[in-house]
Structure formats: structure tokens, C-alpha cells
Design a binder for these strands. Structure first.
Lengths: 156, 156
DNA sequence: GTGCAAGTTGAAGTCAGGTTGAGGTCAAGG
DNA sequence: CCTTGACCTCAACCTGACTTCAACTTGCAC
């Protein structure tokens, strides 16, 4: 916490791989807090790098920034987060990842059967069925896409 | 091809699960062609439903519209596409799906090791490494997200 | 022949996750 | 002190895949 330990935005950008524009954006969005010099420039504590690693990992998995913020907000207020804190956060993604994989595998199996039959039929094709139910039920809901919906990393 | 067989946009919307706005959009984007009544209203051949099934399946897998169009453009010009035509198109996705699954599994394994060590370290964490490479190469590109990027079926 | 649901258009809006640019300020080495 | 590169803010822009809106027209049932 020595003043010497504080990093400029350029240093953080270089070390984290996020461009400065993203760092400023994350700050605006409440994912990061920064100290400022008397002249108004950002100075980052070293711990921001771990936070950014978390953000990077979350984004890679496809977690949206809102949810990332929620996660980060659950970190202990006063003290520096421990290994256990980060572990707890990460663990919750394991399930999501499993879901995503499961959904894709189901899709692949469906695709296989479609390749087999060449159908893509409204009645029979498993790839198509989600939409079909919509047509039947009149509801706006979808089935498989729901699992995949959480839009995977878009930016940059 | 009897005039009686032509469908209105509402009927196609209902049977395909795509809202009319999406159907018009797809037409503007060159994924669909339609006949028109003397008054200018769209009339769809029934075959559009199969095309839409293809589009739905592609979007579900995460294929972008540009690529869907490319695929559809490869369908035979004069004749009605056969089962084999659709099969050929679908088969190319199998590989993509495999890739996506593989990427997610790798991610999950990486996550597991991170949960184990609680690190999310800049140097060691496998979840983090993709970004690290970016930082090195100076490019704005991402590695894994590229595979997951294409936003899964959004419509309705 | 009329009423009204369903259709038409083009333009603009939406959402996420940032990027880009203009115009100006800060900080550090010489 | 001065230069210069790094930094600041605010606003506007970007992509993809649509949706929504306003203002108007069609087409089918009665």
C-alpha cells in the first residue's frame, strides 16, 4: 500500500491485457475502484490485477458484467480477499459451464440425428424442436437457447 | 406451388416461431426470398419453413447470419434442395460444435484447477492465459471467446 | 362495401461491451 | 522551465441481430 506500489493505468493495461479504455469502462460500471493523484490520474492498487483476472475468466466463460459485478460485490468489505474468497466465486461457474457443455452436447447429438435423416423437419428435428414448441404453445419461451443465451464474450 | 400453398408472413411466423420482424429482416439480409401479391404483401412458399429450420438450427449453434447466408447460397439454384443438400450443410457445423464443446471442456478443466489452487494468477491460471497471450501479441483479438462469441439464439 | 386485423415501409431504437476522437491536463526527465 | 508522452473527460460511434414506431395500405369476412 506504499504509494510506490500504485500502478498507472498504462501499467495495469499492460499487465492485465485489458486496454485502458476497458479499465475506465469497468470503473464507470462499478467493477473497479481507483485512487487518484492530486492531478486526477488513476492509481491502481496491485490487487486490481487479481480482480481483473477474475473478470477476464468470467468473461471468457461468458458471464456478463452485471453478474461479474454481483460476484465482486460479495467480496469481503474490509479485508483483502483470500484465496478462499476467490475460490468460492469461481466455483459457482463450474455449474454454469457444465450446463453449457451439456446443452452443446445435446445439440450435437441432435445434429447428428439430423445429419442422419437430413430432415431439419418441423415435426421431427431435435435441433428445431425448441422453436416448434413455441409455435405450439404460443409462448415466447425457448428451450435450449435459454441455456446458451447468456451471451458469450462479445467485446473488443 | 399452387397459389393456395403460399403462406402469409403471419402464418410463417406462427409456424416457424420467428416473429414477422425477423422474417422481414432476414429477407432484407438476403437469407430469404419472397413472392409478392399484387398489393405488395409477402407470400412464402412452404419450402421457406425448411430454410427457417436451417437458420434456427444454425443460430442455435451460434452461426452468424453472414455465414448462414453463405451456406444457403450454396444450395442448388434451380431445383428444390434435397435431403442430401441439407445434410451437407449441416455436417459442416458438426466440427464447429465439437470445437465449441472442446473449448468449454478445456475451460472447465482450467477452472477446476483454479478452484483447487484459488489462484487466478496472472502467471499460472489457465483461465487467464488466453488474455496473457493477447497482451503479448498486442492484438485486440481474443482466443477462446472467438469460438463462443457468436451470440446464441436471441430472437423473440 | 365496409370494417378491421394483418400487412407494408423506412427510420430509429435496443443491448452489451466496449472503442474512438477531440480537446485539454499531468508528471517526469533534461 | 519546457517538452513530451501518458493521462483525463465527455460524447459519439461500433457490431449484430433484431425490435419498435408511425403512418399508411391490403385483403378477407360479413
Amino acid at each position: 500500500m506504499d504509494a510506490k506500489d500504485l500502478l498507472t493505468i498504462g501499467e495495469v493495461a499492460h499487465r492485465s491485457g485489458f486496454p485502458p479504455s476497458a479499465l475506465r469502462y469497468y470503473e464507470r460500471e462499478g467493477l473497479l475502484r481507483t485512487a487518484r493523484t492530486s492531478g486526477g490520474q488513476r492509481r491502481y492498487e496491485r490487487s486490481v490485477l487479481r480482480r481483473l483476472a477474475f473478470i477476464r475468466a468470467a468473461r471468457t466463460i461468458g458471464v456478463g458484467l452485471d453478474e461479474v459485478r454481483e460476484g465482486l460485490d460479495q467480496l469481503p468489505d474490509g479485508r483483502t480477499p483470500t484465496k478462499a474468497d476467490w475460490t468460492r466465486l469461481s466455483r459457482s461457474w463450474r455449474g454454469r459451464l457444465d450446463e453449457q457443455i451439456e446443452a452443446l452436447v445435446a445439440l450435437r447429438d441432435g445434429l447428428d440425428s439430423c445429419i442422419g435423416c437430413g430432415c431439419l423437419s418441423l415435426q421431427r428435428c431435435r435441433l428445431y424442436n425448441p422453436a416448434d414448441r413455441v409455435a405450439e404453445s404460443g409462448s415466447g419461451a425457448q428451450l435450449l437457447p435459454r441455456l446458451l443465451r447468456r451471451t458469450p464474450a462479445q467485446g473488443m
